[in-house]
Design a protein around this nucleic acid. Structure first.
Lengths: 340, 340
DNA sequence: TTGTAGGCGTTATCAT
DNA sequence: ATGATAACGCCTACAA
């Protein structure tokens, strides 16, 4: 058996002083004798004393841990977001607890519950594609655990959130295609429950309408983000007599699957049909057929911003300040077209 | 201000019983009156009592948290490994603290230190490419925090580790190329400090020697895993009078950069020169020029196995058992050649 | 069957 | 300048 770890109690005993003296000496309290202070500090160093943060956290009712819940970290968008979160966290002496929902609602609840048990100081979350019910988040209120939603955010006002303005971005995409001469613009959207799907669709409809073209709902398909579902959507689009000459896909992963379908069916990619997408992920620079344009959504910045807001909320809570308003941070998306 | 959270103390007071009674009633202690038991449990439910795990952890000196340190989660290999870890963790009611080293030694130390402060119950780590000094891990011994290394493991025996047998795997790769008629086989290896680089090189040399060919060290290059470094390595290989007709790259990411160079220099990929690689990542199925073969290293299984071993170590520690030996788990790698 | 009391490591509030 | 003590929430040996 190991000899157990040194505590202030131990130091106090050895030096024949009280624990409070030791505690104060170690934290450089002003009114403490210089002699005792150095004696304490030296012994502490000698014994390799390290304060037991668990005890401190317990007493302070803080953990210096925040929970991050994401659908998948293997998607570059989310791993970049984590990088943003983590970078800022380290600066603030925070550590992050990670949980993936794998786009599964039950799993999301389970992870959230585990985080609650762990008494995280705050939560940053990007919702699963199945989530359209939000009661499980209420249980965090009891513990006053602040939540910041990012990217995949809930559709109502009374929460703190960070996301890109996809309606505007989508209008920009439609305009870009229009200027290149495309009129039959298809749109493969994502799951209904993701609020950003609605945002995208609104942008699509507004963009098309703005050009005085009638919106043809035959050109609007939906995928559940699996390859099969995306292929099915493509099939629906291209089996008609009047197929599209441009396709906007929900994100770069959907793009990859869409393009795979196109290739298998001998559609001349980016010749006959132009493909553009959302996210602008680095991987796309290696793929056979990258999107000709992609809407950059700045995941790193979204992560950073979420963390920044969360820190603000935690600080407010510690100081027992009540915030007057909900953070609603819109990050402008940019259409990147530097593809060959 | 919120009314504060219910505690067993609160319940005890309301019911005019002692805290120990409440504590026992809640944990279904056998010798407790059925009446009191139900009374307690009902009030607990009514007040939405939830035990304060921080207090429990503090007392038990356990956190039910393990720390995971990886170079980059954006690499599919590592995000898959995390998935393996997380899946098993959830089953055991463990949560994972995530830290990325970004292949930076200082950062690795910083993260490890943060984890130590958090008193994680254990650590799973894949070393940064800069790590060739291991003293910072010793500080965990004091807290009896077990460590499991995986994939990027230290080069000595007295640690618990999980990794693929890359020497054998590399020999297999050489054989495969040989059978396809290739004789001038180049090898772009990774950083020296990564032990697996040595393993690969040994395999390469043994593989070539086994074919009674003389090993030509002109054909062996090294990359620090950046795109620039990989391009430089390619340049060195292909500027000679007698360039290779096959290239083995350190992993699929290096492969992508190598192939990019090849394309830019009009080398006919997989025609003039055959490219094969390590890792067999799913993304490669979307890229323009996937490797013609890739050595699958089963990241999910490696993650799972690491977690399994860690659970074993933690259990042993809790039961004050001492383990006789070091876990040294070799997972066989498989050459996957189902590329077109 | 239930209550009492001590302890986990630390800090803060009183005293002295 | 330093000491004694309570408190954080929970568990548990011991006492009744």
């Amino acid at each position: 058996m190991e000899n157990k770890l040194p505590t202030i109690k131990e130091i106090a005993k050895r030096l024949n002083v009280s624990v409070s003296t030791v505690s104060r000496a170690l934290s450089d309290h002003p009114r403490i004798g210089l002699r005792t202070k150095t004696r304490v500090q030296e012994l502490a160093k000698e014994l390799n004393y390290e304060p037991n943060s668990q005890a401190i956290f317990f007493k302070q009712k803080k953990t210096y841990v925040i929970g991050v819940i994401l659908p998948y970290i293997r998607e570059e968008f989310f791993s970049e977001a984590i990088r943003g979160i983590e970078t800022l966290a380290l600066e603030h002496d925070y550590t992050i607890l990670l949980g993936q929902s794998f786009d599964d609602f039950e799993r999301e609840k389970k992870v959230l519950d585990a985080f609650k048990k762990q008494r995280v100081d705050g939560v940053i979350i990007s919702l699963s594609k199945q989530t359209n019910e939000y009661t499980h988040f209420e249980s965090l209120e009891k513990y006053e655990i602040p939540i910041v939603y990012f990217d995949r955010v809930p559709p109502f006002k009374q929460v703190h959130k960070v996301y890109c303005d996809l309606r505007k971005g989508t209008i920009e995409m439609v305009n870009w295609l229009f200027n290149k001469g495309h009129r039959r613009i298809a749109f493969i959207n994502g799951p209904d429950k993701i609020h950003a799907s609605k945002e995208r669709l609104d942008g699509y409809i507004d963009g098309i309408s703005g050009k005085k073209i009638k919106v043809d709902m035959q050109l609007v398909e939906r995928t559940d983000l699996t390859k099969e579902s995306t292929h099915k959507a493509m099939e629906n689009l291209f089996k008609t007599k009047n197929p599209p000459n441009a396709v906007i896909t929900f994100n770069d992963y959907v793009h990859l699957d869409a393009v795979q379908y196109a290739k298998q069916h001998h559609i001349k990619i980016n010749k006959e049909v132009l493909f553009i997408s959302y996210a602008n992920l680095p991987v796309t620079s290696y793929v056979a057929h990258p999107p000709m344009a992609s809407l950059e959504q700045y995941p790193f910045r979204q992560g950073e911003k979420s963390m920044e807001i969360l820190m603000e909320l935690i600080k407010a809570k510690n100081e027992k300040r009540t915030l007057k308003a909900w953070f609603d941070e819109k990050i402008p998306a940019t259409l990147i077209t530097t593809r060959s």
